[in-house]
Each structure stands twice: as structure tokens, then as C-alpha cells.
Amino acid sequence: MAATSYNWNEIAQHPKYLQLKSKKRSFLFGWWIFASVYYFLLPILSGYVPDLFRIRIVGAINFGYLFILSQFVVAIFVAIYYTRVANNDFDRLTAELVREIQ
């Protein structure tokens, strides 16, 4: 197994690693919490403020329907944004870190 050749504790103190870790952590948990809050607005608003969902926007289409659609938009936006950041920043930092320890 190739895995044993790394000194994990040493890598864990590497400044580049610490930078990567804090960047990743704040980004991932931040967006996860944002997305979850947005998602839970759906059952909460539809259950406790149903009048809001009844407001008609275009013809028969009301706020509730558009809010459900917006859930799709938000999920796709978060996914695309994360992919961009991960592909550009996280993967690049990881590659630099791996180069430095090897």
C-alpha cells in the first residue's frame, strides 16, 4: 500500500494545507447551510403562511409554484458555482500542496 509513505501529522501542519482546509470548510458549510435554509423555507412557508403561496403572479401560476421552481434554480446554481470553485481553487491548491510534499 502506498498510503503508509505519508506523514499525516506533518501534512496536517503544512501552511498550504491549513489554507486549503479553512477555505474548503467555510465554503462548503456556508453554502450547505444557505441551501438548507432555503430548502426548509418551502415546507415552513407553505405550511404556516399558505396565503403567501396563493398570491397569483401570471394567470393561474402563483407564488407557490414559482417558489418551488426557484428551489430547482437555487440547487442548480449552488451545484454549478461549487463546481467552478472546486475545479479552479480547491483542485489547484490541492495539486500545489501535493507537489510540495512529494
Binding site: W32, Q71, V78
Partner: peptide, 20 residues
């Protein structure tokens, strides 16, 4: 519309999977 609301859960569960 209540049936459509059900669809959001499975779709949104990908966010937690993707991020963490």
C-alpha cells in the same frame, strides 16, 4: 401542487451529498 412539492426533497438532497 402538493404533489410537486414532494419532488423538491429528492432533488435538494443532492446539495448535501455534493458539498459534504
Amino acid at each position: 401542487i402538493d404533489g410537486f412539492m414532494y419532488a423538491v426533497g429528492p432533488m435538494f438532497s443532492f446539495i448535501a451529498i455534493l458539498l459534504v
